[in-house]
Design a protein around this nucleic acid. Sequence first.
DNA 1: ATGAAAGCGCTAACAT
DNA 2: ATGTTAGCGCTTTCAT
Lengths: 333, 333
Amino acid sequence: MNITIYDVAREANVSMATVSRVVNGNPNVKPATRKKVNEVIERLGYRPNAVARGLASKKTTTVGVIIPDISSIFYAELARGIEDIATMYKYNIILSNSDANHDKELHLIQTMLGKQVDGVVFMSSNITEEHIEELKKSPVPVVLAGTVEDTEQIPSVNIDYKQAVMDAVAFFEGNGHSRIALVTGPATDAITRKNIMPGYRESLEKAGLSFEEDYVIETDFSYDSGVEALSQLADLDKRPTAIYVSSDEAALGIIHAAYDRGIKIPEELEVISSDNTRLSLMVRPRLSTVVQPLYDIGAVSMRLLTKLMNKEEVEESSVILPHRLELRGSTRN
Amino acid sequence: MNITIYDVAREANVSMATVSRVVNGNPNVKPATRKKVNEVIERLGYRPNAVARGLASKKTTTVGVIIPDISSIFYAELARGIEDIATMYKYNIILSNSDANHDKELHLIQTMLGKQVDGVVFMSSNITEEHIEELKKSPVPVVLAGTVEDTEQIPSVNIDYKQAVMDAVAFFEGNGHSRIALVTGPATDAITRKNIMPGYRESLEKAGLSFEEDYVIETDFSYDSGVEALSQLADLDKRPTAIYVSSDEAALGIIHAAYDRGIKIPEELEVISSDNTRLSLMVRPRLSTVVQPLYDIGAVSMRLLTKLMNKEEVEESSVILPHRLELRGSTRN
DNA sequence: ATGAAAGCGCTAACAT
DNA sequence: ATGTTAGCGCTTTCAT
C-alpha cells in the first residue's frame, strides 16, 4: 500500500485538508504547520496520487498528442516542440501514433478523451468531416499542428504552404527555368492537394508556363520514392531543370539519384526542398529549403492549447507562422 | 457535465454494476441486458472515465517513457517500437524528454509514478547509483531500453555493444588496416565508456595493434561533430585508414567531410557506423553499419514490461538482442 | 488557519 | 444474472 494524504495527516496531527493545502501551495497554512507537514511528507516519502487528484479536480495536467509517426524526422521535431512547451506549463503528454490512419485517429481521440486529457494536439495529413465533427464534440480544447482544415472550425498552427511553393517556383523562374517539376506527397495528403498543387499551378500560370502532367510526381515522402521520382523525371524527353520537393527525405533521394546519374546539382538541376529538417544539412550539396519552423509549429500549438485550456481569450485561433527560403548548395544563388 | 455510468444505469433500468460489467466485457450479463445497456451507451455517447477507473482499480493502462530526446532519430525509432507494442497490449504512453539530464530524469520518474503509471521504460545515456536506487524503489516495474546498467538490478534490453565494436574492428583488421580510429560519443555516455572503449582497446590488443590516443575522438553524436572529427583525424601525420563511428549521424558528417577533402571512401578510408538508422541509406556511399535493431529494442523492452506488469515469470531480465554487420558502400567488402 | 464531510466516477467484493 | 455498497485518494465547499 502506498502512502496517502491520510497517512501524512495522521503523522502530522493535522487534517487531510491541511495536507492538501500544503501540497497545493495554498497560502492559508501557518508556516509552522506547513513546515511540520512538509517534514512528514519528506519522511514518509509521500507522493500525491495524480489519478485521485484528477478525479476530484477534473484536471489531469495531461494532454493528448496524436501524431502520424513519431519516427518520422518531420513529426519528431514537431513533437519535441509540443513536449517542451507542455513541460514548461507543467503538462505531461500522452503520445500515440496514428499512422495517418483515419479510423485509428478517430479511435485515439476517444481513448484520449476517455483518459480525461485536458486538451489534445492533433496532427494528421488528412482531416475529414468526421474528424471535425468528433473534434468539435470534444469537451476539451483541440489544436491542430501542421495540419490544415479549411473550414477553420478547429484552432490550428501552420505556415502558408501555398505561398511557400509559390516562393520556390518564383525563385526558379527568376533563375530562368521554364521546366520546373514538382515532387509532392500522396494525393491523400491534404496539404499536397489543397495547398502545394494549387500553389504550383498558380505560380506556373503567373510565370506564363504551361502545366505539364509529367512534371508532377507523387511520393510517399520517403527517400526511396525520391530516388524513384528523379529517375522518372530524368527519363523524360524534356527533362526538368528545377524541382521543388515537399519533403527533405525525398529530396535527399533526389539528390543522390541525380548524383548516381551524373546529373550535376545545382548546375544542371536545381532543387528546393521543404521542411528544413536537420536532414537538409546532411547531404552534399546542402539542400536549399523552404524553412518550415517545425519545432515552433509544435511549440506554438501547445502554447495555444494552454491558453485554450486556461479559457484565456485568443485573438486568432488559426495561426500562420512565417516561412522563408533558405538558399544553400542545391540552388544557384 | 459528462455522462457517467450512473446515467447509463438509470436510462437502462439496471444497476451501475451491470453497466460496469457490460463495459468491461464481464460474461455474467444476460445478452438481452447487454444489448439494452449497449444501446443506451451508444445513445447517450457514454465514454468510461479512465481516471475514475484508474483510481478504483489501481491500474491506469498507461506506462511512462523517459527518453533523452524524441527528436533524435535514434531514440525516435526506439520510441516507435515501444509505442507499437504498448498499443498492442492496450497501454498508452506518457512520453517525456529528459535531455539526458540527471536531475530531470529523477524528477520525471517521480512525476510518472505520481501519475500512477503501471510501468516505466527508461532510457538514459548514463545511469547512476541514484537512478538505480530510485528505480528499485519504484512500486511498478521498470525496464531499461538501450541503456546499460552493469549491476543488472534493473531489467533491460540491449545489444552487446562491446562485441559490436570488436566485430567492426576485426573486420577492419581483416581488410589489412592497422590505423583504425574510433569516433565515439561523449565520456558521459555509459555505453561509450563501458562498452565501446573497452571493446576498441581489447580488439586492438588482440590484433597486436597499439592504442593511439589521437585515434579516438569524442563527439556528441551530431553531424557537425562528425565533420569535426574527420577533420582532426585527417590532419594527423599518420592518418587513419578506417574509422568506427558510434552514431549514424556523426558518420554522415564524416563521410561528407571526407568528400569535401577529396578523401575517397572506401578506397582511402573505410567507415563502419553503428545504429543502422534509415540515415545509413541516405548517403553516398551508403554506410556499412553494425545493425542495432532499434525498433526491436524498444518493442522487446515494452513486451518485457508487459510481462513484468502482468507478474509473469521472465526467465532472463537482461535481454541481449543480436546484432550483425551490414556491409554497404563505405567499406571494401 | 484548520477540520469535517461530501463527492469525483468507477471497480470489486459481497449479497441476493 | 443482477444489485448494493464500500472504498480508491484526493479536492473542495462549508463550518468553525
